[in-house]
Structures are given as structure tokens and as C-alpha cells.
């Protein structure tokens, strides 16, 4: 499992691996936003949390298509099923690797992107905190979508259509928590804790669902 995690990380960090591309995509989305909305700093700051979250969601979905596809095509998946131990655990490891190269760097880049959007210190902190605990949910639930579309040549679009509705709760509570952190009467903690619970819930059903789909889809 650790070996699998390390290999996925090292593959992702190589040229063409996708980790850097996801970060660039995130940058592009965040930078495109002011052009769509206008350079009104106040407006940008209000929707800053939402922009960061939408960007993270899209960037997270971007790399999911290849989560199992490479392994499916070159026969690695067969070896994983044959001798890798429990498949859900291996899927979990792959999801963690995916998060380490997409969700985590995006979270860490928030202070820079937040400045572009003219966000306050509190909002930036809140965005970082919610993205840190919320982006794993995207990797875990996305694994199911990646597993059911693994045999499709262009499964990426379909994967997004399947996974995006399931990510709506994370988005609602994530952005809600950021907003609550800046607007006074609303408490930050309840939506924040809900984001954490969603990540934990998806961390359980995601790997099991994906492992089931990989087994059932094997031929």
C-alpha cells in the first residue's frame, strides 16, 4: 500500500504526471474570474471563497479520470487485485496520493490566490481550513466515478457529470463556512464540522464503492 502510494506520487510529479497541470488549471480558473466579473475588489473579495472552492472542485475532477485508467490499461490493476491485499485499502492509498498532489497543493496555494482576489486574512484562513478538510471528499467520492468509467476512452466528462452532484453538499458547507467566518452572526463551526464529516463519510464509501466497481468491471 505504501509502495503504491509512493509510486503514484512519483508518477504524478513527473512531467506529464498531472500534479503541476492541476495547479496551473486552478491558477487559470482563479485568474479568469476577475475578467468575467470585473475588477471590483469588493465584489471579488465577497465571492472569493466561492471562487476558490469552484476552482478546487474543477481542478480535483480534472485528474480523476486517470486515477485508475493507466493501471487498467497496462495490466497493473490485475496485479493489484491478484496480490495487493484488500482492494479498498489500495483504492484508499491511491485516493490519498491523488489528494496529496491536487487537494493539498491547491490548499497551500490559497494565500497567494486569495491576495489576487482581495480577500481578508480571516477569509483566507477559513478558505484554507475548509479546503484542507473538504478536498479529500472530492478525491474519495471521485474514485467511484473514476472506477465506473475506467473502461471508457473519454470517460472524463461523464465522470464529472456523475460526481459533481455528489460534491454539491461539500461545496455548500465549504463555501458556507468561509462566508460564516467573515459575516458575524453566523457560526463557522457547524458547517466546518459538516465538511469534515462528509470527508470522513466519503472516505468510507468511496474506496469500497470504487473497489466493488473495479472488481465487477474487470474482464
Amino acid at each position: 500500500m505504501i509502495a503504491l502510494l509512493k509510486r503514484d506520487l512519483s508518477l504524478a510529479l513527473r512531467s506529464g504526471g498531472g500534479a503541476v497541470t492541476a495547479l496551473l488549471f486552478y491558477l487559470a480558473v482563479v485568474v479568469a474570474m476577475p475578467f468575467a466579473i470585473g475588477p471590483n475588489t469588493q465584489l471579488l473579495a465577497t465571492i472569493g471563497g466561492a471562487t476558490l472552492w469552484i476552482g478546487a472542485l474543477l481542478a480535483g475532477l480534472l485528474g480523476l479520470e486517470r486515477l485508475f485508467q493507466g493501471d487498467y490499461e497496462d495490466g497493473t490493476l490485475d496485479q493489484m487485485m491478484l496480490m495487493g491485499g484488500p482492494l479498498p485499502a489500495q483504492v484508499f492509498a491511491k485516493c490519498v496520493a491523488h489528494w496529496l498532489v491536487t487537494g493539498l497543493p491547491l490548499t497551500l496555494s490559497v494565500p497567494v490566490f486569495g491576495l489576487f482576489l482581495g480577500m481578508e486574512g480571516v477569509a483566507i484562513q477559513a478558505s484554507m481550513a475548509t479546503l484542507l478538510v473538504g478536498t479529500p471528499a472530492i478525491s474519495f467520492i471521485g474514485a467511484v466515478g473514476a472506477a465506473v468509467t475506467v473502461s471508457l476512452q473519454r470517460g472524463g466528462l461523464l465522470l464529472s457529470v456523475l460526481v459533481l452532484p455528489l460534491c454539491i453538499p461539500v461545496l455548500i458547507f465549504g463555501v458556507g463556512a468561509v462566508r460564516a467566518a467573515v459575516t458575524d452572526p453566523d457560526p463557522f463551526l457547524p458547517p466546518f464540522l459538516l465538511v469534515i464529516s462528509l470527508s470522513l463519510f466519503f472516505a468510507v464509501i468511496g474506496p469500497f464503492g470504487a473497489a466493488l466497481a473495479l472488481r465487477q468491471g474487470n474482464d
Binding site: 508518477l11 497496462d74 497493473t76 491478484l82 496480490m83 495487493g84
Partner: peptide, 26 residues
């Protein structure tokens, strides 16, 4: 079992050694 299928289960982006070391650990 060792299973050698139609595909060799190797990653083109990694070197031969890295591939084999991975499978040995795995």
C-alpha cells in the same frame, strides 16, 4: 500466483529499475 497477462504492468514514465523495485515491494 504470478500472472503475466497480455500487458506487462509497467509504467512507461518510470525506469526499468524503478518499475521492478516497485513490483518487488508490492
Amino acid at each position: 500466483c504470478h500472472y503475466l497477462g497480455h500487458d506487462n504492468a509497467m509504467k512507461p514514465a518510470m525506469s526499468v529499475g524503478e518499475n521492478l523495485v516497485f513490483w518487488q515491494k508490492f
